[in-house]
Write a protein that binds this DNA or RNA. Structure first.
Lengths: 231, 231
DNA sequence: AATGCATAAAATATCGATATTTTATTGACG
DNA sequence: CGTCAATAAAATATCGATATTTTATGCATT
């Protein structure tokens, strides 16, 4: 953990947009995957070194991240990576289940063929991608993570509310952070993902909700002990 | 409108916290009540004059506001006040109804005596406060607005999810912005607020949801034409 | 040993200058 | 008249210095 924290993950070469936005993206990723661990003080001077930019873009990114929920801002005391806890995990999952129930019901009700096709493709791509980057020992596969996120967002993509989608995105990312932080066993969720997709495509909202909620709760159950130890 | 835009609403004298936070609060209020109108370009040089602080705190505040949904940020092009539209209003109200349905059901289920008492007091204070600042012509009463917000947040305060509460807060504020921007007739919502409170306190979730949703939709109906004209 | 105070060191937040990018303007050409 | 290119003006974004605040340290007192 210490070496992961101190090692610079790279500089914003080939900058697109602004330095502040690049730093925001990089820092956000580092926090969500645990490279910047829960509770860590985010000192501007250290971050300048780590990301290779000046204090202003760093502070701008930190301000944005603080509204995202991954960074905690205290006036005059600076910024800190948001803590994790079992209570927080449970509240997060509970809220996620509420909101995604609404979102998936609305998507099933309003979703057209295009939505179905996006969902089917998202599942297909996810199912073709190895869950683990290593065949012997579980190792996080970044490709799978990207496709996994896309699959879950495709499920709710037809709910016709950018607000609800953005809230679900936020809760998704925060929940995934817990998964990255926890000791996660080899587990293949393929059948669960397929059951969710089938229920959605077959326009069975009650089934979809039940399987989806079960999926999220099961994940939380698996990682709960581990979260208790890192918090 | 032009004079309201150009007139400085005050400087951060007696700064508490940081300049960035003070500017954030002031600018947020100015946007929500329409003093900084929809679509307006937020030029840093102008805001420096208006709020009397340097570019850095201005940019920091703008970055935070951009995640709030009241400001739109485009890299290399700066910041602009978020636009309004009828479609946006409808999506907002729809989402608000979904989320507050969940929040009020959960609050009714989990809320203890303390929650009831907070709600009863919030209603009481709201009912004692004149809806309009002027007895002849409707004029926005800031005191009523503060208590109105508190009442609605008290309703959902026992839902046991800080995420859901913060989303409802955001949607509440954005919906209230529409009310401030629109030509709003003299209307007294006292009976509606009472019906909502009674249903909640009497632990009747279906009634509470129905009256609450009706309340929000009615407001949207009242202001829709006016919103169409300012957007 | 615990508490309080003063001072030094470290960190946070802001300022103003300046580098970079976008927008506006003007003139040439078809 | 419309389009394109060049240039100037305006605006955005960043830098590094510095003012302000917080934290750490050392010493004295109870």
């Amino acid at each position: 953990m210490a070496s992961a924290t101190l090692e610079s993950p790279g500089k914003p070469d080939g900058v697109v947009g602004t330095l502040a936005s690049s730093v925001y993206d990089m820092m956000r990723k580092d926090i969500l995957k645990g490279d910047l661990p829960p509770g860590e003080k985010l000192r501007v001077e250290y971050l300048r070194d780590r990301y290779g930019v000046g204090a202003s873009p760093i502070r701008e990114a930190l301000n944005r991240l603080s509204v995202d929920g991954v960074v905690v801002r205290v006036d005059q005391k600076g910024f800190r990576v948001a803590e994790v806890s079992v209570a927080e995990l449970d509240e997060l999952i509970k809220t996620r289940c509420w909101l995604e129930e609404t979102a998936i019901r609305e998507s099933i009700a309003a979703g057209d063929d295009a939505w179905e096709e996006r969902l089917v493709l998202a599942f297909h791509r996810l199912s073709k991608t190895p869950r683990s980057a290593d065949q012997v020992t579980y190792a996080m596969n970044p490709d799978w993570e990207v496709l996994h996120r896309a699959f879950h967002l495709a499920l709710i993509g037809a709910c016709e509310s950018r607000w609800l989608i953005s809230y679900c995105e936020q809760l998704n990312d925060l929940a995934d952070r817990y998964r990255q932080l926890a000791a996660y066993p080899r587990r293949n969720e393929l059948d669960e993902h397929k059951a969710i997709m089938d229920a959605a495509v077959n326009r069975k909202p009650d089934d979809a909700v039940e399987v989806l909620v079960d999926h999220y709760r099961r994940t939380a159950d698996i990682i709960r002990d581990s979260v208790d130890q890192i918090s």
